[in-house]
Simulated assay, not measured.
Amino acid sequence: MSTETVDGGTDAAVTVTESAASEALRLMESEGMDTDVAGLRLFVQQGGCAGLSYGMRFDHEPEDDDAVIKQNGLRVFIDPASQNYIGGSTLQFEGGLQGAGFHVENPNVVSECGCGESFRT
């Protein structure tokens, strides 16, 4: 098994804010998931008007080649191809009058589409 685990710190491929971790853990627990093993999968996929978009889902365990980042109690699974696009990013949870949701602040983005749903590096 080649799964790499990074516990927080500045070397992590992705930084997870406390609010993002708290909300993800709350959602996972509400679905009956074991948060000691399960995690949030963060990935990049083809799509959107700018070419790439983010995807997120809960997985019960990491794949063999995933990087596993644990910050603020949340395990984040990232496949090797996605790491190339999201290294150095911050996963945030934002709430407000226009709706709440997870947001990726990615320093590698050179342009985004008008609606902010897709990007190009």
Rank of each mutant, 00 (worst) to 15 (best):
M1S: 14
M1A: 14
T3Q: 14
T3K: 12
E4R: 15
E4D: 08
T5H: 12
T5Q: 14
V6C: 07
D7T: 14
D7W: 02
D7P: 00
G8I: 03
G9T: 09
G9L: 09
T10G: 03
T10I: 11
A12K: 12
A13I: 07
V14T: 06
T15E: 13
T15P: 01
V16R: 02
T17C: 02
T17H: 10
E18S: 15
A20D: 02
A20K: 00
A21R: 01
E23S: 05
E23D: 04
L25E: 10
L27E: 12
L27D: 09
M28D: 05
E29H: 01
E29F: 00
S30Y: 03
S30M: 10
D34R: 10
V37P: 00
A38P: 08
A38M: 09
G39D: 06
R41I: 01
L42V: 15
F43P: 00
F43N: 02
V44I: 12
Q45F: 03
Q46V: 07
G47R: 04
G47Y: 03
G51V: 04
L52S: 15
L52R: 15
S53K: 15
Y54S: 05
Y54P: 01
Y54V: 14
M56H: 03
M56S: 12
R57Y: 01
R57N: 10
R57L: 10
R57T: 07
F58A: 13
D59N: 10
D59P: 03
E61W: 08
E63V: 08
D64T: 14
A67L: 13
A67F: 08
V68S: 12
I69S: 02
K70D: 02
K70M: 05
N72M: 01
G73P: 05
L74Y: 02
L74G: 11
R75W: 00
V76Y: 04
V76W: 07
F77D: 15
I78T: 12
D79K: 13
D79A: 06
P80A: 11
Q83C: 07
Q83E: 15
N84D: 14
I86P: 04
G87L: 06
G88S: 07
G88H: 06
G88Q: 05
T90C: 06
T90R: 11
Q92C: 03
Q92R: 14
E94W: 03
G95P: 00
G95M: 02
G96T: 03
G96E: 09
Q98E: 10
Q98I: 10
Q98V: 08
Q98F: 15
A100H: 04
A100F: 01
A100N: 09
G101E: 05
G101Q: 09
F102G: 00
F102C: 02
F102A: 01
H103T: 09
H103V: 13
V104W: 05
E105M: 06
P107A: 06
N108A: 11
N108M: 07
N108H: 05
S111W: 10
S111V: 02
E112M: 13
G116R: 12
E117D: 08
F119W: 09
F119L: 11
R120E: 13
R120F: 11
